[in-house]
Simulated scan of single mutants.
Amino acid sequence: MTEIINPEGQDMKEVRNVPLQSIDLDTFKSIYYWTNVKPDTQIKIFEERKKIELSNIHELNDRVHQKLDTHKVETYINSINFILSDGNFKEYGSWGEFQRQNWEYINQTIRSINITWDITLSLPNHVLPQKHTLKVRLGSAIPPKEMFQIMFTSDEPSELIESRAEGLVKVDFINQVIANELIKVVNDWHDGLKKVDHESGFIKVLEKRQKYIVSAIANFTPVFFILLAYLYHSLLCNQFGVSKNLNILSLQRSIVVLAFVFSIGILVGRILARWIDRKIDKFKYETGFYISRGDKNYLDELKNDNNKIKKEIIGKSILAVISGVIAVGTKVILEYFLNK
């Protein structure tokens, strides 16, 4: 446990053993304030995903060290933990333990990194050192399906914003100037990181327009089926000797046929829309971490899987277009030979 030193050089154990009447008022106020004060909090949200390598984490720790060297630090504890895929966690109580880890032996991908600096600083107008906590989280924005749980279980709107961020820096502070300095250090470090290469071209269009594409397929397919029914109507009437003149019987038949065709179109449209919606959801995106062996393997899998899904969607789309062209072309050919 970290010892807290009073102005006269006595530790807290000695202070607690001293009768209350012998403690001067200033010392009592300092101890009471230190043990009961609620620190203020300042948060900076990072909305953009950046590339994080092992060297970047060490660089961030060095920058924080350099900034703290400009202040009188009494105690300093640094810890870091990783949330990995497959429900795995790695926690390091000290920076030395983290440095000894060989990340080439880790086959899981990294989902989130949380770094914490617990610091006590000697400040003007404070008899006892004051605790400051710097926290940095990178990655692991909460999935949308878990949003409702947070909305109903949390009374703090800020928690919802924090959970959706791609990263953040948070400082619990007594001194506002120090908090601003630490926020700036982390923000400058984050600004200097490389941006994640987002998918471009075909995949980007599908991702951004997913809702409209799925809706268009579901709604247009029944219309296309009705169009085919209309194109084949005259051909079928001539072939089977059905009168084209409008009467109650022909109207009833037309309504029944169109209703049947429209229902088939709705069914086919929904099947196609759900299929392409699932395929677009299966696209993988870079986590932003390039640290473990699992991270590197994931990049190879990402490219292969995305290319496979892209080929399936393109192939299905081409097949649908060809089927439509064949359906229309067949009508023209049949009409030509039957009328010849």
Rank of each mutant, 00 (worst) to 15 (best):
I203L: 10
A259G: 12
K194T: 08
F260S: 13
L193C: 05
K303D: 11
N306A: 08
E207R: 13
S254T: 13
S263I: 04
G324F: 08
I248V: 13
Q252H: 04
D277A: 10
F220T: 11
N245A: 14
S323D: 02
L231V: 13
F220R: 01
S250N: 13
D300T: 12
K282T: 09
F240A: 06
I255S: 07
R274E: 12
G324Q: 06
F220P: 00
I280K: 02
I314P: 00
S234V: 09
D281R: 12
L258G: 03
I226R: 00
F224P: 01
Y285H: 11
R278F: 07
S243C: 06
L267F: 14
K296W: 06
D305P: 00
D197T: 13
G269Y: 04
L249G: 09
G294R: 01
F240P: 03
I203N: 05
K279N: 10
H198L: 14
A218H: 00
S243W: 05
S323F: 15
I291N: 02
W275G: 09
D277W: 04
Y212L: 15
N307K: 11
V214C: 05
I276H: 03
V196I: 10
I291E: 02
I213D: 05
V205K: 09
F240Y: 15
L236P: 01
P222N: 07
V205H: 10
S234C: 05
D295V: 03
A229G: 14
Q252F: 13
G294A: 06
T287C: 04
Y232I: 08
N307P: 06
E207F: 01
V214Q: 04
I203D: 05
A259Q: 03
N307Q: 14
N306F: 08
F262G: 07
S243Q: 10
K194C: 01
E286I: 04
I313Q: 02
Y212M: 15
K195R: 11
K316V: 10
Y290F: 14
L251G: 07
I248P: 01
D300W: 05
F202S: 08
L227P: 00
E301L: 09
V321I: 15
L267G: 09
E312R: 11
K310V: 06
F225C: 00
S243I: 06
T330I: 10
H190W: 07
L246Q: 07
T330P: 01
R274D: 12
D197E: 15
K303M: 05
R253S: 10
S200H: 12
A327P: 01
T330W: 01
F224Y: 14
N307A: 11
L251P: 00
D305L: 08
A229T: 09
K204E: 15
I248F: 14
G269F: 03
V321H: 04
V205L: 15
A216V: 10
F240E: 05
A218G: 04
I276E: 03
F260H: 01
V321P: 02
E312M: 10
F220I: 15
G294S: 07
N307L: 11
D197I: 10
I226G: 02
K303T: 10
I314K: 13
G329L: 01
I314F: 11
I309P: 00
K296Q: 11
K296A: 07
V196A: 04
V325E: 03
V256C: 05
F260K: 06
N247S: 14
W275I: 02
V223Y: 09
I271F: 14
A216F: 15
L272Y: 11
Y232T: 08
